[in-house]
């Protein structure tokens, strides 16, 4: 089980969290202006990175807040967690 460091509550077991998928996907400012290709990208296309992945987590059974994390999907090692609205920190692989 992963130990995840909630930026608000500290390190907690994975069971307390819900996964929110790829982070930093902005909702379209003018949805009416999007064509079908843009909608496809927004709704369905994901990086599915093998490597360092910026992703959303929610501390569902704790503070219930969303936050972001950098995790290496080759090892499941968490490199950083940070609050929504913040930029992803610079990290180097361990």
């Amino acid at each position: 089980m992963l130990i995840i460091n909630c930026p608000y509550c500290g390190a907690r077991p994975e069971l307390e969290f819900a996964y929110g998928g790829q982070a930093h996907i902005d909702r379209p400012v003018q949805p009416a202006d999007l064509n079908d290709e843009d909608w496809t990208g927004y709704l369905y296309l994901r990086e599915n990175t093998k490597g360092i992945h910026a992703e959303r987590w929610r501390h569902l059974h704790g503070c219930a807040r969303f936050f972001n994390a950098l995790r290496d999907t080759r090892t499941d090692h968490f490199l950083a967690t940070y609050k929504v609205g913040e930029k992803a920190p610079e990290v180097t692989r361990p």
């Binding site: 994975e14 819900a18 996964y19 093998k50 999907t73 499941d76």
Partner: peptide
Amino acid sequence: DIYTSYTQRGGLH
């Protein structure tokens, strides 16, 4: 498991 990964393992729970 609930998260994307390439590790070919998962949580024991």
